[in-house]
Computed example of a mutant assay.
Amino acid sequence: MSSSTRVDVAIQGIRLLDAPVARRAGAGPSDDGHVLLDGVGAAIPLNPRSPYTVSGGRLLLDGADTGMGVEAVARPRFYDLRTADGVPYEQIARLHSARVLATTVVQTCVRYDEAERCRFCAIEESLRQGSTIAVKTPAMIAEVARAAHELDGITQMVMTTGTSNGRDRGATHLARCVRAVREVLPDLPIQVQCEPPASLETIQELYDAGARSIGIHVESLDDGVRRRWMPGKGSVPLAEYRAAWVEAVRVFGWNQVSTYLLVGLGEDPDELVAGAEELIAMGVYPFVVPFRPLAGTLATDVDRVPAPPSDVLHHVTARVAAALRRAGMHGAGQAAGCAACGACSALSCEGA
């Protein structure tokens, strides 16, 4: 697969894409359809103005075959089920790519007031649209995970959460949910995602619960960018992130800790790459993805910020991938999580 084409599709999306597995709004990259590009999972924006289309299982650019095959991920069978209380399973957890189950265990965030909200985030929009529920109980998540494993063959799971008021910032409920899933699926790899907890002992608790990788997502290492884009989350000092990453690497191991780095927030590309290299030296995988305009976010509805240029994203992705390769660090080496899945980034196309 051409990495430049993969990057361009990540920015421009695909027009008229029939994607049975798709996501609108939410805590992370969404408004996308999940497909296999040359057999590799990819979450691609659904863009009615994209020059890319699909015909006969081929990806076309302005009508010309790019040489890349496209196959939509089939709707999973567990989506047709409900709990005894009548809650649809797909409101509890969703399929990402072809074999990853993902859930936001708490769909609200203490930082969602407009003055504090991350401008790229729409975590509560899916709740307002009625496509999810506010809090998923451990029992609910375990029930859905078992069904998704038995019916659709999921091979890993990702659990994230909105930030809470507590010192744990939501990690305690994550740990309960992990334990519940491990009781019914003891061999299923699980990644958890949260802000740095106030007490670093919480990281050990997440591991002891059964999580085998962790994402502590900073999005940007530039304090100016953090203040503009994440006024609430940006109030957590980078020193707390670094301390949490160090402890997480100690607990979970080298290349079992990751963080998102978003391209397109106004950061200097060279500084972003240098920051990624610092993370790699710590044993943390920098998961480089483009900022994606998303309806319902302040960045799109108010600021009208576009996606980054494809050439900038490709340049940054290639340089970070080269640093990852030099370190022998690969997303596929993570037990579970976004880097292990790889659908939202082009790093895997660059051998990382």
Rank of each mutant, 00 (worst) to 15 (best):
Y112V: 02
A239P: 07
E124H: 02
S220F: 10
V135M: 08
V316R: 06
R6K: 01
D18K: 10
R111A: 11
E116T: 14
D223R: 11
S131H: 09
R49S: 14
T155Q: 14
A340H: 12
R292C: 00
L238M: 11
V225G: 06
G275I: 01
E143D: 15
N165F: 14
L298R: 13
A327G: 04
A339Q: 07
P286A: 01
T202N: 06
E116S: 14
E201I: 02
V320E: 09
V246A: 14
G170Y: 03
R292F: 00
H314V: 00
I280E: 10
T108C: 04
V54P: 12
G264L: 01
E267A: 02
C344L: 04
A42Y: 11
N165T: 13
W245V: 00
G153V: 03
V87M: 05
L36H: 12
S348R: 12
T300Y: 14
A243K: 11
C109M: 07
Q156W: 04
S126G: 05
I14F: 05
Y79Q: 00
A64M: 07
C177G: 08
I216H: 11
T103R: 05
T317H: 07
P51F: 12
V106L: 13
A72E: 12
P88Y: 10
A27Q: 12
V273A: 06
R128N: 12
V320S: 09
E201Y: 04
E124C: 00
G337S: 08
D32P: 00
D65G: 08
Q193W: 01
C109P: 09
I92C: 04
G57D: 12
G56W: 09
L200W: 09
R212C: 15
V218G: 08
M230N: 07
G67I: 02
L151R: 13
D311K: 05
V40A: 14
V73H: 08
L265T: 10
R292H: 14
L17P: 10
L298I: 15
R77C: 03
V320L: 04
R146H: 13
T66N: 08
T53H: 03
R75P: 02
S3L: 08
L313V: 15
A93S: 09
R319G: 03
A243T: 03
P286W: 11
T108M: 02
T5A: 06
G296M: 00
A19C: 04
I214R: 06
T53G: 11
A22S: 15
T160H: 07
A318C: 04
L185H: 05
L221S: 01
D80Q: 08
E116H: 12
A318K: 14
N255I: 00
G337P: 11
A322T: 15
L206N: 07
A321Q: 11
G283T: 05
A98F: 10
G56F: 02
Q334Y: 00
E350S: 06
P290V: 01
C118I: 03
P293W: 04
D268S: 10
V288A: 03
